[in-house]
Design a protein around this nucleic acid. Structure first.
Lengths: 208, 208
DNA sequence: ATGATAATGGACAGCTTGTTCGGGATTTTC
DNA sequence: GAAAATCCCGAACAAGCTGTCCATTATCAT
């Protein structure tokens, strides 16, 4: 029996992934049928179902690959770097660079093209990254920690979306700088010095 | 010919909207078929197509109603209030209260239940609101204005999502306070006093 | 080369979609 | 109240997609 995966199988899977990528960029995930995918990939119907249980399975498979890539990039980029908790947004630099490298893949996931599955997956991954870097104790207890985590993760997605849709020629480092400054410093730094002192509302004692 | 809409037609449309609402809360928009909707609404197949061209048409129709409600609420809530540019997040208070009032409707739109159509529509509406309130000139030019607009709009959606999914018993005013503090003051206020001074990166001169 | 193994393509029934039609019920108008 | 207009309903239709089956073909190990 063959130790490695059969070359034919590898070729088929690559063709299917490529077809999914192409079609998602063109029509979006939800509007896609299995028929479209196998037509684009030039693959038989039963062949598709021999490899994947449906289009969602194919989608998740591709997502896993990208996730593996990402985790590797994260760990190498931050191997000898400063320890965590030093920079609460430490994930962002490597992440923006990874997005630039796999621009087509990331493009399928944003702007509503990815469907609910992709959206949820990427938000989960990001939330987990942020959670590991955010200091366990926040100043005061006025804002719950998981709220802050979601805030950061979604802000990153916003930056990514804006980057690809509006200014795709920017360098990853440039977008990263804007992202960090806005999330760290907030809006008050941008709207004039006289409002620099934000009002500090009393911490709500009875938050459910 | 009847001056007003026929009562039967109004009843049918109301039943269809209610069915869509119920089913979206249960299964999400994308997983819904026209068959599901007319079964839930107890309406004939041809009747449905006599009123709407498909499920997306029905969705947009309901969305228009809610939008009308919202714009009315916004204008009345801020009739005699302070003029714009005074508070860059002036929309949020009335918006959170509107969301509390129409909780079921808003719940269908967040958490991936609403599908790409809803997501895009609500982001457009929010962006427009924010754009009108944000001062035309931002401190420095390091961060493009439309990036800031998207940042605020998406942060609001994050807050709304977190509110409904995690702490639905909070009052609108409480969520509003957290939202404003986080967006205005940023992350640096939460992670210890020694990092209160954020580093100010030099404005990028060549942003494309 | 040759048998074993695995991928392939096309055909199949079952289901959903969107449309059309005539009979029957309800509302509006007079 | 009765007539006329309008709307709802149910059935039936072609078209498309889905998931499964099996005989055929191409690739692998010896």
């Amino acid at each position: 029996m063959p130790r490695d995966i059969d070359r034919r199988a590898a070729r088929t899977r690559k063709a299917l992934h490529q077809a999914l990528l192409t079609l998602m960029l063109r029509k979006g995930y939800e509007a896609l049928s299995v028929q479209d995918i196998i037509d684009e990939a030039d693959v038989g119907r039963s062949t598709f179902y021999a490899h994947y249980t449906g289009k969602e399975d194919l989608l998740r498979s591709g997502f896993q690959m990208l996730r593996g890539e990402l985790e590797e990039a994260q760990s190498t980029a931050r191997a000898g770097a400063e320890a965590s908790h030093d920079d609460p947004l430490g994930f962002s630099t490597a992440m923006f660079e990874h997005a630039a490298r796999y621009a087509d893949h990331y493009r399928t996931m944003i702007g509503g093209r990815g469907g609910a599955v992709t959206e949820n997956e990427i938000r989960l991954i990001l939330s987990e990254m942020v959670r590991q870097e955010l200091p366990p104790t926040l100043y005061g207890d006025a804002i719950p920690r998981d709220f802050v985590v979601q805030f950061i993760a979604d802000a990153f997605l916003t930056a990514l979306n804006w980057w690809f849709e509006r200014k795709p020629r920017l360098l990853p480092s440039q977008v990263d700088a804007m992202f960090r400054r806005l999330v760290l410093g907030g809006l008050s730094q941008l709207i004039g010095d006289e409002r620099r002192q934000i009002d500090r509302p009393a911490a709500n004692r009875d938050t459910d």
